[in-house]
Amino acid sequence: MKPPKFDYHAPRSVDEALGLLQRYGGDAKVLAGGQSLMPLLNFRLSRPAALVDLNRIPSLAYITEQDGQVRLGAMTRQRTIEFSPVVKERLPLLREATKLVGHLPIRTRGTIGGSLAHADPSAEYPAVLTALEGEVVARGPKGERVIKAKNLFRTYLTTSLEPDEILVEVRMPAMPAGAGFALEEFARRHGDFAIIGIAAMVVRDGPRCRTARLTTAGAGPVPLRLRAAEEILERDGLTDAAIEAAARRASELVSPDADIHASADYRRHLTGVLTKRALKRALGAARG
């Protein structure tokens, strides 16, 4: 299992990287943390003409706070996110999700931009970006454009990024103070991609629920926002009955696929169970 031959480039700037992508006209692959792409290369399931390695572009790794948003450079390592005080304070759901990404040695190299651009629907980051209504910045030959989460993920391992574009920044609105949150996952083995994961955030206003966010991982070709379930909570508050109803609704909203690890029915059922568990835990952590 050795990778096939490819040209290798380690540009020092995004512009240089974009030039390389153009040069190869869609036959080059962008190498970020490499924790998904390198296995594909080793299996020879991916045979690009060239790799454009972003790891020598230091300006792509940062975490800043601006206009109520947390902005993360695409090459920010998952490990950096895990231990970032800003993320802990402003995006605690992202922090919780990060701890569930593979294992620590994977997070040493894995990046947020790489994970989102890889668009594995079972992965944590796409679900969190979707739940928090985040967006990404893509830069291409024609300049930058902002892509909202709901427009980013097209299907399995496919995004709306163009082949000559590079995802350069991830933006997530800071979570409201006191928001309750949880990422509930069920996997057969620790550290694996979830059979089903549910990212939840609730913002309380006394007995009422001002905002509810529920997103799936693993329940279909893209992370799915469970809006109809959220609406039940926003309408009926965070009572046990409303949570049960939202969980039931959640399982009706998904049409997951079957694989060797789980049937579609089981995934649908788990969607309800984990929605309930995520909401209960989120509620327990919510203030306000």
Partner: peptide, 27 residues
């Protein structure tokens, strides 16, 4: 395993654990 799962190839890369089977030497 050469696909980043078993961890036998883990080294410290600039002080942090990483899988050396899914990194290129040039990196």
């Amino acid at each position: 395993c050469e696909h980043g799962i078993c961890g036998a190839c883990t080294i410290l890369f600039n002080g942090e654990a990483a899988r050396s089977c899914i990194m290129l030497a040039v990196q």
